[in-house]
Write a protein that binds this DNA or RNA. Structure first.
Lengths: 193, 193, 193, 193
DNA sequence: TCCTAAGCGAGACGGTACGTCTTGTCTTCCA
DNA sequence: TGGAAGACAAGACGTACCGTCTCGCTTAGGA
């Protein structure tokens, strides 16, 4: 059973080739326009090989997202703690996006599909609940229900993130995060009294 | 030239039947799962008839959105002026959505496609530019560029709107708009000094 | 309901094109080597069109056989009666094969599949039962059961027919039938006493 | 040099396992429906193992036929001589089939493929030429060419054999051979004058 | 009142992509 | 080092939709 390493390496290599092919094609034509056949041709891979690794195009796409997520969490744990500050988390994400720009553009830019955006949305919402539930998510006396609050914070963040990814503006991550903070922090503070 | 009225009536009737069929099907299965064949069958219409009226499913869908837009603009001009207040506009939209709930759910809810959301986004952004450009969109000295500001305001609004449409919560339109104002107004004021 | 004629003509034309394409390809590569894709390409027809007319390659093939059968039965009823003589029937078939040599080679030659041979076998066996049952197929006192007798006569005939189709020998149909009669008639007479 | 015996044994064992697996599967689903994957799974063998022993499914199948042929020839040489009598040879084969019924059904029954039948046909034709050429195969003055004669005799025989294998009738080998003789001998004698 | 142009239903058609299946080759590991 | 396990490229299969098309029928409206 130890002898599987080499085989596993082959498998991993094929998966990587497929992911790369998809990302490249997304940046060229946009997610929806890419067909499984395109990916297969670009990756020089047999049709059945594709389907033995991934259920469909979405699955391949999301596997790329998972890589991204793992990288990001590694990045997070390496960095400073968040001090319970959501805008610290958003900063990390802006920074991470900046250093993996092509990947982020393919996955979360307007060329990417809805699939990833929804995934990221869910992921961030979960992350927020996890880290800040004690602070406000369980208070019952607010005008704005915690659910709405979380949804708003994540949506606003992603609005700025995707805008940034889709317009080739020279703003650095820190500038983007400052905007995000300026726009959202006052409202959040007001709501939390 | 004059004799076309009866024919036009027939044409309008067919278009309406197709729009209704699509809306009904979207609420049943979600936008993506609906095929042109489904619409044709439901509407009891020939395939070529469909394509003589609309280029594709998206075009039919957007024609439904146009109806909505016209209704909404009628509603707007009937109501009080906005006094240059974005949260007055958002209130009108929440109210309009409330009184056409099924239609809004089909078009902008999670059953609807991305197509409509993007369309609405663009429309609202244009509306904002139109009405409030004098106020701040042309100031050059802000930390947050007007583009980002508009994008943020529309995105936040739509986040609350879609959340409201997709979760069957009993909040009235006014309550939703209060939340929207509470969350966004302080930040906007701060940014505008 | 009269308006279906034009459509039917189109349908018949497409079916004919597909049959012709298959027959040509069989003569080129043999039945088994021909793929549905080959037929589609040769016939300049869409994939779904093929499947809307025929369930699979075998069905298309057998539809060609049905044409042949109809032709043959027309030929039979035009010609002299069989007088209850099986070797008269076999003669007709040798003659019919001779005048439609390419078609017979494609369907029943070694390039053709097993499908047609089995079909023809069954067809001829049924034909025999129909025409000669009174003579001997219901006698119970024979050493050779009627079933075996019919199977033997048809198999022998087809052995000579396929041999003839597969070897480009200059024997005319009448010569082949004489051989068939010489070989089988004495045995049949002996068995029937 | 010395250690090859054990290896050869292993090799033989693998080949046998594969043959058995194929035969069993043919009786279950028919030759055409059996895939290489089926055989591999049934035999608990790796894919490359299969292909290192046999070129393809047909080759494996025919190797089974070769075993049968060797057995039969052993059986032949053990028994009485044929006295130049074809119906003695056919009797031996009917008898041999009777005592290896399952194997014959798998190879030559309707579950078996065309491959075996063609092989057996060729083999028997050759056997006939070998043993009886002096008698008539070289006469030039017959109405029926020797080629056709041989083809007819073998085809008739196989017609009766396969009929017998495919219908579970209680006739013993001798009875089948009597039928074969009754049907064919008179014609043959007549042709040979 | 009849004629004629257009709207329309029905659905055949050429295409494209899908996800499944099988084949024969190639790579890796292990005994 | 040679045989077993199984990953792989290739490509056919049958299905599902798409957007174009051809065909007769119905149904105004103007003559």
């Amino acid at each position: 059973m130890v002898g599987k390493v080499g085989v596993d390496r082959r498998i991993q290599r094929t998966r990587q080739i497929l992911q790369d092919a998809l990302m490249a094609l997304i940046l060229e034509k946009g997610y929806d326009a890419v067909t499984v056949q395109d990916v297969i041709d670009r990756a020089n891979v047999g049709r059945s090989t594709f389907y033995s690794h991934f259920q469909d195009k979405d699955a391949l796409f999301l596997s790329g997202f998972e890589s991204l997520r793992e990288q990001f969490e590694q990045y997070l744990s390496d960095g400073a703690s968040m001090n319970g500050d959501p805008w610290n988390l958003s900063l990390q994400m802006f920074q991470h996006a900046q250093s993996h720009l092509q990947l982020y553009k393919a996955l979360a830019g307007k060329q990417g599909g809805t699939v990833a955006l929804e995934h990221i949305h869910k992921y961030l919402t979960a992350l927020m609940r996890e880290h800040f539930k004690s602070q406000f998510l369980e208070r019952k006396d607010m005008d704005v229900p915690p659910d709405v609050l979380a949804h708003y914070m994540v949506s606003s963040f992603m609005a700025l993130l995707t805008w940034w990814l889709d317009h080739d503006v020279p703003y650095p991550a820190e500038r983007m995060n400052d905007m995000y903070r300026q726009l959202t922090q006052p409202g959040i503070i007001a709501v939390l009294r």
